[in-house]
């Protein structure tokens, strides 16, 4: 009897010692574990979709093949998820936060609600870039930037709310190239703004070309008054509608204006980025970075994105680091110029 007890105790304590002392390398670490992808925006949208598509494939590129679950932690345009990732999530390599890169600009502009230092996140990379563009409805009779600059009427641009491409772009253009856009904000999303354009409540809008080329496709192809005409874009894109358009950085006048614009546009170089909390072990971050990169090349992943027409451009974690630094080393002059974009803090 006594021997049996002794035997059981020694086996149990042996197991204990093994469990706690055995050197668990990052490679074995992920075996039978679950990684949480926490998306800061609602289920069903573009952010969510890209996180879920990556989540479906990334597990098999991590040694130990962990399970990946995708959750939504919505609120304040993904700020809640960003703050959570930085301050509350465990830095154990099992938590990945996915939130809007424009929050990095808000940090650069000194917004106190950003309770993080974007330099300290571990960045896995980003699955896409953003290319802001502006379009106008044919019913206005205006067809190009030139028409718009000389038009003697108010041009109403639909917007969701502050901090969005819809809101920021026309305001920056007003400041830097002298357009006279009136931003009509309060719409729920791209679809509602497109409907508002069709019923002539607003005249146009500025948002990502990646979204416009698919969601606004019927309107881009339409004839007559219902046609949507792109007139300005951030960078050269191959689609026939935009390939000859003037580029925003080329029409902006003045060195300071251009530098301010470039800072603002910096966050568009890494859209929907994947981040881990500060302090996540280096070797796990490296594993995840590599897995992220491998996923982007995975044929299964590529097939999924082609089916969903999900635009992907792989931006590596190192590149994200670089862009984050670029946005955060904002010049005082640019900060002053962009100050009107920041939400005023409560005193």
């Amino acid at each position: 009897m006594k021997r049996k007890i002794l035997w059981v105790t020694s086996v149990l304590s042996g197991l204990f010692v093994f469990a706690f002392l055995s050197p668990v390398g990052a490679a074995d670490f992920y075996k039978d574990k679950t990684i949480r992808f926490v998306v800061g925006l609602a289920a069903g949208g573009g952010y969510d979709l890209s996180a879920r598509t990556i989540g479906r494939h990334m597990g098999k590129h991590i040694p130990g093949n962990p399970t990946i679950v995708v959750e939504n932690m919505t609120g304040a345009g993904s700020l809640i998820a960003a703050n959570y990732t930085y301050n509350s999530a465990k830095p154990d390599g099992l938590f990945v936060g996915i939130w809007n890169s424009s929050l990095v600009l808000r940090q650069a502009l000194g917004d106190k609600a950003m309770r993080f230092d974007a330099r300290k996140f571990g960045w896995l990379g980003a699955p896409t870039k953003g290319t802001p563009h502006c379009s106008i409805m044919a019913h206005t009779g205006l067809k190009s930037l030139k028409d718009i600059l000389v038009a003697d009427r108010e041009i109403k641009m639909g917007s969701t709310g502050p901090g969005s491409t819809y809101d920021d772009t026309p305001r920056i253009l007003n400041q830097t190239i002298g357009t006279k856009f009136k931003v009509v904000s309060g719409y729920e999303g791209t679809s509602t703004i497109l409907v508002a354009m069709r019923r002539k409540e607003v005249d146009g809008g500025c948002w990502g070309w990646e979204s416009a080329r698919t969601t606004a496709r019927p309107m881009l192809n339409a004839k007559g008054e219902e046609k949507l005409i792109p007139f300005l874009i951030h960078s050269r894109e191959p689609d026939p509608e935009v390939k000859d358009l003037p580029l925003i950085p080329e029409v902006i006048k003045g060195e300071d204006n251009l530098s301010a614009y470039r800072t603002w546009a910096g966050t568009y170089e890494f859209q929907r980025p994947f981040s881990v909390p500060p302090g996540t072990p280096k070797e796990r971050l490296q594993l995840l970075r590599k897995a992220f990169a491998d996923t982007m090349k995975d044929p299964g992943f590529i097939a999924d994105t082609e089916k969903s027409k999900l635009e992907t451009t792989y931006v590596s974690g190192e590149e994200v680091d670089k862009y984050v630094n670029q946005v955060l080393s904002i010049t005082p002059k640019a900060k002053e110029l962009l100050d009107f974009l920041a939400t005023k803090p409560k005193k």
Partner: peptide, 9 residues
Amino acid sequence: GAFLIQGIV
């Protein structure tokens, strides 16, 4: 979102 996944606009 399912429309998006299926690539239907």
